[in-house]
Design a binder for these strands. Sequence first.
DNA 1: ATTACTTTTCCTGTTT
DNA 2: AAAACAGGAAAAGTAA
Length: 266
Amino acid sequence: MVLQAGGIMSIPATVSVDNQLPASWTTHYNCTDVTSSYMSRLWSQDLHPQNWTKYQVWEWLQQTLDMHQIDPTSIPFQNFDLDGRQLCNMSFQDFTRAAGSVGSILFQSLCDLKWNDFPCSILPFKEESNFYNTSELFDIKSSFQPNTTISSPAPSSPDPKLSQVKRHNPRGTHLWEFIRDILLNPERNPGLIKWEDRSEGVFRFLKSEAVAQLWGKKKNNSSMTYEKLSRAMRYYYKREILERVDGRRLVYKFGRNARGWRESEK
DNA sequence: ATTACTTTTCCTGTTT
DNA sequence: AAAACAGGAAAAGTAA
């Protein structure tokens, strides 16, 4: 029998992701536990949508879609590369232009935030934030959770088109989506992965182990490694979510079945 | 409980 | 020699 010595011990203490993240990231991470009071104060007083940064707009978008169980890839995020002021200046029509039928949901949601005082149902779920969010990069759940009371349960917009909105994996972000979302948010991607050829969908891992750690964090698996992550990536070839790029290490390319990575895509 | 699908884990071998 | 790439196999996790 072959002895596999040291297998377990070799879990990379090597790359501590947190050490590599810029302040803005870790701040966001760490605040999640302490957040309740902090956030509610922050949200109810200081940070009206008007004053949101682009990042906060982005966060709001994620949360709202999630809350309504709308597949994030069904709307073009590029259309929301806006700060709070710009967002608040958007008309209803602007929203529908930017996000189709989902636009009305977003508009509605934003109106609630703009004009209502906060539904205090916003931070009731302490345990859940632990659940999938020790420190989550791409969906920071600190502020709200799907809670039916949060925004008018029956939005008075029986839009027929809404029925064809994809209701899909609210929680399940797949690996390739995770990767895509890192790529799509350069402000918060501290040199982890970079586009090699943006229009062709070619990208390269710069810090493979750090990405793996981050992925592990998301999946609550502290022993994730690039070795294992890359095996999952290779399974994507067959499904044409990724295409092979050979000869170039750590380089991958989105395939025909990968959605939502293009600059202008719908 | 079942099932289909995705990811993780582990491994052996190859390539860069 | 070290790090990536390749996939097979099987276990484990997940969503419906």
